[in-house]
């Protein structure tokens, strides 16, 4: 574990602890929500304030002929939407430029993270097996270990792999061959160092190998994050050099009752929510067919 600790040390130096994300994650995990703290945080961050204003005055939340100022916007949007705006902005800073080891383009890892967050929230809402807000944060942070892989291996680390070579148990095998650990284990170590709640650290650790029911550490939150990872892959939001080389655990498929129809519904819904979010953040509609 010595080398993992050294790697995490290096990573922490390059990516300072995401204090705001950790704080919001703690609020959600403990259920102790501090609305005043969240308001203060919004008021002191220019980008988040702008996003709150845009959202409060958007077609979905606004009132025709009326423009809400920041304080009114905060009241109007409510805690759930505000938490999301904060997390989406802060995660964008965290993941900015990350994912080079996997051949990802700028912001791709952030797109995959937010896609995973939205999918996890959606699955948690429909299956009612865990708190959707906690599932959102765990889905958002599940791949933070890729930040550490970037630090360890540098850009395009997996480009020498033969495209026809399919690892039997998934791409995490390739990571273990090069590093001795995979991005999920690294992510959990990093999350621990950043003082994220234990349950979220466990979800990050096991999101590619969820323990079976009855096994130590089994938690529906892990299952939800694991399933959300596949919805994100099928949504095409973050496909890197690792491709689709991951396995969906049969016990998760069964316990969460994921079939073709539900998966397709969640793929469409995740992509729709992601596009809405992207447009809200950029403040304009992108070019496309709509």
């Amino acid at each position: 574990m010595g080398s993992v600790e050294t790697l995490i040390d290096k990573c922490v130096k390059l990516s300072p602890a995401p204090v705001v994300i950790a704080r919001v994650a703690s609020m959600l995990s403990s259920g102790e929500y501090n609305s005043k703290e969240l308001e203060d945080l919004i008021m002191t961050d220019e980008a988040i304030s702008a996003s709150v204003l845009r959202t409060a005055n958007s077609a979905a939340y606004g009132v025709p002929g009326r423009v809400f100022d920041l304080r009114e916007g905060i009241v109007r949007l409510g805690s759930k939407t505000l938490r999301r705006i904060v997390l989406e902005h802060k995660s964008s800073e965290l993941f900015d430029g990350a994912g080079e080891a996997y051949g990802l383009r700028r912001q791709d890892l952030w797109r995959g993270s937010v896609g995973g967050a939205l999918a996890a929230e959606l699955i948690a809402e429909s299956r009612k097996v865990c708190e959707p807000g906690v599932a959102y944060v765990a889905g958002l942070l599940r791949d933070i270990g890729k930040l550490a892989v970037d630090v360890a291996l540098g850009a395009d680390a997996f480009r020498d792999i033969d495209p026809d070579e399919t690892p039997e148990r998934g791409f995490t095998e390739q990571e273990r061959l090069r590093l001795g650990v995979d991005h999920a284990e690294l992510g959990a170590a990093l999350a621990k160092r950043w003082n994220l709640p234990d349950r979220i650290c466990a979800a990050i650790h096991h999101h590619h190998r969820p323990p079976e029911p009855g096994e130590t550490g089994a938690d529906p939150l892990i299952d939800v994050v694991h399933a959300a990872d596949f919805i994100t892959l099928w949504s095409g939001l973050c496909i890197g050099d690792d491709g689709l080389q991951y396995q969906l655990a049969p016990h998760v498929r069964e316990s969460l009752k994921i079939d073709r129809a539900s998966a397709e519904h969640e793929i469409v819904e995740t992509m729709t929510r992601f596009r809405d979010l992207e447009e809200a953040i950029s403040g304009h509609s992108e070019q496309g067919a709509a």
Binding site: L244, Q247, A263
Partner: peptide
């Protein structure tokens, strides 16, 4: 049109 590993005919999205 790629597939995840071991799909076993459950989803076959690709």
């Amino acid at each position: 049109g790629a597939e995840i590993l071991n799909d076993d005919g459950h989803f076959r999205v690709g």
